[in-house]
Amino acid sequence: MFKLFKPGDLVVFIICFFSIILIFINFYRVPSGSFISIENNNQTKEYSLSSKSVIELEGITIEINSGRVRVVKSSCKNQYCIMQGWISKLNQSILCLPNLTKITIKSNDNNITHDSTAY
């Protein structure tokens, strides 16, 4: 008679399932960046992400801690930049429009960037 599930099926099932999961992780892993660039009042400054520091600019205070960045204090009304919290992945950014500030995580490696066909 016909048995529903045989032992070899389990092997095929597990191999296929884990290879699909591996492909998923491989394609959708977002790399972390190595430095940040801060644009503030038309001036661009770059800081290393590995350092641990607090940067005070005009009306805004930015904290870098173990590969992550956040805005600690801001003079703006809505405080969206603070509510966004920590960012750590490549190409993520925090904007604070009242203070004309843009913080972006970048990488020295030019090969890992997003392209238009990936979604």
């Binding site: 599930f5 045989k6 296929c16």
Partner: peptide, 15 residues
């Protein structure tokens, strides 16, 4: 070429 004792429709369908 897979043995019918160890593999059933599930394997064939997945593959």
């Amino acid at each position: 070429f897979l043995s019918k004792n160890f593999f059933s429709l599930f394997s064939f369908s997945i593959l």
